[in-house]
Every structure is written in structure tokens, then in C-alpha cells.
């Protein structure tokens, strides 16, 4: 089978290896599809972070604080 014929459906795992550094690649700036995709992205990024995320981060904070052993 040609490698490009397969659809990636990975098992649920987290990656353990180090990942390569970021190199910028963009769709041409005058491309209407690219513009629309970036607007989609930018609109979500501009939204305030919902309350449930703050609660989740609060739980993480509590775990962090709980991990500190007082002298």
C-alpha cells in the first residue's frame, strides 16, 4: 500500500519524543481560502477564555500548591 493511501487514525497516546522546531509556512497572503481560514482562527483566538477553562486551570493550580511541602 502506498503510504499516502492510508488515513491516519492514531491510537490515543501522547507523544513522548521531542518535536522539531517550528518553521513558518503560510498559504499565499492573497489567497481567499487562506484569508478565510485565518479569519476563522483569529475570531476564536480573540474570544475570552471560557469559565470552564479557568476552573480547570484552578484545579491544576491547587495541585501545584498542594505539591509544595511546607517547611
Amino acid at each position: 500500500m502506498h503510504p499516502q493511501d492510508s488515513i491516519t487514525m492514531p491510537e490515543e497516546t501522547v507523544p513522548e519524543r521531542g518535536l522539531k522546531s517550528v518553521k513558518e509556512t503560510v498559504i499565499a497572503s492573497d489567497d481567499p481560502i487562506g484569508k478565510a481560514l485565518r479569519r476563522l482562527h483569529d475570531e476564536v483566538v480573540a474570544e475570552p477564555i471560557p469559565e470552564e477553562f479557568l476552573r480547570l486551570l484552578g484545579e491544576i493550580e491547587r495541585k501545584l500548591n498542594g505539591a509544595v511541602t511546607p517547611e
Binding site: 518535536l19 522539531k20 518553521k23 509556512t25
Partner: peptide, 9 residues
């Protein structure tokens, strides 16, 4: 297209 990651990433 939206997030601007590279081909490699």
C-alpha cells in the same frame, strides 16, 4: 492555513 504551522510541524 489557519494556524500557520509549517509543513514539517
Amino acid at each position: 492555513g489557519a494556524n500557520g504551522v509549517s509543513y514539517e510541524e
